Computed example of a mutant assay.
Amino acid sequence: MMTAFARTVILYFLIMTGLRLMGKRQIGELEPGELVLTMMISDLATVPMQDFGIPLLAGVIPILTLLALSMLLSQLSLTSLRFRALACGTPSILIREGVLQQEAMRKNRYTLDELLEELRGQGITGVEEVKYAVLENSGHLSVLPWAKSQPPTAEQLGVKTGEDVTLPVVLVNDGRLLRRNLEARGLDEVWLREVLRKEGLSSHREAFLLTVDETGRVVCVRKEGEP
């Protein structure tokens, strides 16, 4: 039992480390090589987990080899545009200035139904409303409507929007004080106690969430069930 537990833990952290090296990607954003790598690693890991007669290294070495190969190919993709185009492909334009590019759709095996479904999902009802529709390497369809079809911005309307959006920093997370964030904002516990007092809280443990942005605006959410 302990052997199975130890082997599973080792392989789990090994695979998690490898996937972290691949970068932050959602499954739908994986390029073909990354998707194949993920599937192969999952298959390689299940064998030594279930069959104790197979040495653990028989699963670890192939996984490390695949991860090393993936890192090498990623580096080659960064240094060589030709190799990147060969390994990952290139984006394809499916709609150009409101006209369907049928040859590109056939080449990518992209049906008209799939294209119209994607357009409807982005609030577009007709092909003529689109200036460019680009099928990315990840399979995502990027749609660029004509300028006349795009919603106006506040700048175009001459509307003053006030302060720009600022990024809030979490100081209290579910009652836990994040001292590093507090110090990074140049604040101290004296300031925190004063803010909590104004919010009617006696301790940061009573706060579910407390954030402060670059302008000093504080947002505090009390824990449910707290008096």
Rank of each mutant, 00 (worst) to 15 (best):
M1R: 08
M2S: 11
M2V: 09
T3R: 14
A4V: 12
F5H: 07
A6T: 14
L11R: 03
M16F: 14
T17Q: 09
L19V: 13
R20F: 11
G23T: 12
G23E: 15
K24A: 11
K24W: 08
Q26S: 11
P32L: 08
E34F: 03
V36C: 07
V36S: 11
T38K: 14
T38H: 09
M39D: 01
I41V: 15
A45G: 10
A45K: 06
V47T: 15
V47D: 06
V47K: 13
F52N: 13
G53S: 15
G53Q: 14
I54G: 13
I54D: 10
G59S: 07
G59Q: 02
G59V: 01
I61P: 00
I63Y: 02
L67R: 01
S70V: 00
L73K: 09
S77R: 13
L78F: 11
S80L: 09
R82G: 09
C88D: 13
K107C: 00
L112G: 00
D113C: 02
E117M: 14
G121A: 15
Q122R: 15
G123T: 11
T125I: 10
G126P: 00
E128W: 06
V130S: 09
V134R: 03
V134C: 03
G139L: 01
S142V: 02
V143N: 11
W146F: 15
K148C: 06
S149A: 14
Q150V: 14
Q150S: 14
T153D: 05
E155W: 01
L157Q: 12
G158H: 06
V159Y: 05
T161D: 03
T161M: 13
G162T: 12
G162C: 11
E163P: 09
D164P: 10
V165S: 14
V169P: 07
R176Y: 03
R176L: 04
R176G: 00
R179P: 02
R180K: 08
R185W: 06
E194N: 09
V195Q: 15
K198F: 01
K198C: 04
G200R: 00
G200A: 00
G200T: 00
S203I: 02
S203K: 04
H204D: 07
R205H: 10
R205Y: 03
E206W: 04
A207I: 08
A207F: 03
F208N: 08
L209E: 11
L210V: 13
L210M: 15
T211H: 12
E214Y: 08
C220V: 15
K223Q: 14
P227M: 07
